[in-house]
Design a protein around this nucleic acid. Structure first.
Length: 222
DNA sequence: GATTTGATTCTCT
DNA sequence: GAGAATCAAATCC
């Protein structure tokens, strides 16, 4: 029998998290409905033997095949987006702009290819390690402020694509809060242009670590 | 096979 | 605020 909730004690903060089985069940829902439930979630990385824990403050929801033009899986299943078609709770890590990694949590029923992009968080444990990995950060709130900064602070990269984030043995794990965040805002997604731009599928709490909103813009190329 | 695009970040002005 | 860095995947022809 699993406990109703377990606690993670990290000093001046305390998060009541739900059991992995309950979390996996919750993650089976539609991406825009599940996304707010990930606010306040706790992601722990043990990559390289160093422990870094962040509390999620900002997420974006992405739909599946034929549902969401802003999603990698909109057209069809490919080798790249294959992890999105896996079971909910798995990680989908992709490389973008030639230099950045972004971490998603697969949601929705298996095969529906929904995902939640983890856009920002605040570092609760392992700040020194995070500073070492993110020397250009200007403040503690800046350590994981932005999807690529967050993966840098956690040392998450392609090696973690497809791992089960709800398995305790995984190098990167996620724990959902037993009590969801009640105060949050939604807005259009960052960097999504075209037909999917209108969706209010970006959710964030009132926290300094939330990344500044930037609408999609055309890029000049040299 | 060639070209375009992108769920970004950093630096310089 | 604008531009550069940098590359895999998707799309175009």
């Amino acid at each position: 029998m699993l406990p109703m909730a377990t606690s993670l004690d990290g000093g001046d903060w305390l998060v009541q998290v739900m059991p992995a089985r309950a979390a996996r069940s919750l993650l089976c829902g539609d991406p825009p409905r599940v996304a707010p439930a990930l606010l306040g979630a706790v992601i722990t990385s043990r990559v390289g033997g160093a422990k870094v824990t962040v509390r999620v403050t900002e997420v974006e929801a992405y739909g599946g095949v034929g549902v969401d033009p802003g999603s990698h899986a909109f057209r069809r299943r490919t080798a790249r987006n294959a992890p999105m078609f896996g079971p909910p709770g798995n990680a989908y890590v992709y490389f973008t702009y030639g230099m950045h990694w972004c971490l998603n949590v697969v949601v929705g029923d298996r095969g529906t290819a929904g995902a939640i992009l983890i856009r920002a968080g605040c570092v609760l444990v392992g700040q020194q390690v995070a500073w070492h990995r993110r020397p250009t950060a200007r403040s503690a709130h800046d350590l994981a402020r932005g999807p690529a900064r967050l993966t840098a602070a956690l040392a998450v990269d392609g090696a973690h694509n497809g791992v089960d984030l709800l398995a305790p043995a995984s190098p990167v794990t996620i724990a959902l809060p037993a009590t969801g965040v009640h105060q949050f805002a939604s807005s259009p997604r960052t960097g999504v242009s075209g037909p999917g731009a209108w969706t209010m599928w970006r959710f964030h709490t009132d926290d300094p670590s939330v990344s500044p909103y930037r609408p999609a813009r055309a890029r000049a190329r040299g």
